[in-house]
């Protein structure tokens, strides 16, 4: 009932405002106002043109300010070998984007201000200029050709890593289910056993085939431990819906799709302990801990944080999607082997 009354009052208010302004307009017309009210006057052009210029300046200042103010929140340098190539490509592309942004946006807002309408001035009749258009078709085309080739080379380097040299990848299966991750290591025989959804159940989260002898020594864990400096070949699977294994610090992401196996390989470059010592990481940690300190001061119960690599789910997968995570620890090879040797094998579960 209240809603109806509120609605009625609103409607009446609109009508009242309408009638009032009709009155004002009629008064204007009687007094001989000539300019139609809805058409911008020279004064409007002046005001709006100036505001546009100010907005343009403000926008550029805000962009530059943000680059400094929010720098510490960004991801630190990559913790995987291929990530360097990705980040260099990113920097080149960003530089290009900023150059174009800082040329076109000022022109746009400046022209809006400079050529704001003045009574009696006539615009330049300038319908086309083929040479100019050729120039600004071919320049983007050339620059983009460069970016495309560069990007394709980087992609090839990531997705088709060369098999030369010491290529003895450690195979790890990453298995997603609503809403957690499981990791499977090959065990002593260095071979993952066959798996099928029909065998899923109980301790056998990932569906290892009990009849396959290669699977008997497989190891299932809930945190992901990987050795530094060795190539890791990840094989991704899912139990239920599509998940996406996102390891932002390594510049790695791959979907886990039910019914198929996807893969991605990379070589970790820093152990967790080493990575924590990097300057940018320390900046990030203190930036986070500053935020946490403020919340603690307000009486919230938040623990101070130390850096750890994480694996996040990055494909909408259900109500627990936002909290589907696992910790990643990168260790020296010896420490990694020692850790692996302590884990229970599948046959002992």
């Amino acid at each position: 009932m209240t809603g109806v009354l509120v609605a009625a009052v609103l409607v009446l208010a609109v009508v009242a405002i309408g009638q009032l302004s009709n009155l004002l307009r009629l008064r204007g017309e009687i007094r001989g106002g000539e300019h139609p009210p809805a058409i911008p006057t020279e004064r409007d052009n002046n005001r709006q043109g100036t505001l546009m210029l100010l907005f343009g300046i403000g926008l550029l200042i805000a962009v530059i300010w943000s680059l400094f103010a929010w720098r510490d929140t960004l991801l630190p340098e990559p913790a995987a070998a291929h990530g360097r190539k990705v980040d260099t490509l990113m920097r080149v592309t960003l530089a290009l984007i900023f150059i174009v942004f800082f040329i076109t946006q000022p022109l746009l807002f400046y022209f809006t201000f400079k050529y704001r309408g003045v009574k009696g001035r006539r615009a330049l009749y300038y319908p086309h200029n083929d040479r100019l258009e050729l120039v600004w078709t071919s320049i983007p085309a050339t620059v983009l050709a460069g970016i495309i080739v560069y990007g394709l080379l980087v992609w090839k380097g990531i997705m088709y890593p060369s098999d030369k040299g010491n290529d003895d990848p450690l195979v790890i299966e990453v298995y997603g289910q609503q809403f957690n991750w499981t990791f499977r290591y090959a065990g002593r025989d260095s071979q993952l056993g066959d798996a099928d959804v029909r065998f899923v159940g109980g301790e056998n989260i990932v569906g290892i085939d009990p009849n396959d002898s290669r699977g008997r020594d497989d190891i299932l864990t809930k945190t992901l431990h990987i050795p530094k400096g060795r190539k890791i070949l990840f094989q991704f699977r899912s139990q239920d819906v599509i998940h996406s294994a996102y390891m932002p610090h390594f510049r790695v992401q791959m979907n886990c799709v039910p019914g198929m196996v996807t893969q991605f390989s990379f070589t970790p470059a820093y152990t967790t302990a080493e990575f924590r010592q990097l300057k940018h990481v320390q900046h990030k940690v203190s930036s986070v801990n500053d935020a946490i300190a403020k919340r603690r001061a307000r009486g919230e119960d938040v623990e101070p944080w130390d850096f750890d690599y994480v694996l996040l789910c990055n494909k909408i997968c259900g109500s627990g999607h936002y909290n589907m995570q696992a910790k990643i620890r990168v260790e020296e090879p010896a420490a990694f082997s020692a850790w692996l040797a302590q884990q229970k094998e599948f046959k002992d579960l």
Binding site: Y115, G117, Y126
Partner: peptide, 8 residues
């Protein structure tokens, strides 16, 4: 926009 007479 260049050399126009912009009605804003």
């Amino acid at each position: 926009l260049w050399k126009g007479n912009l009605r804003l």
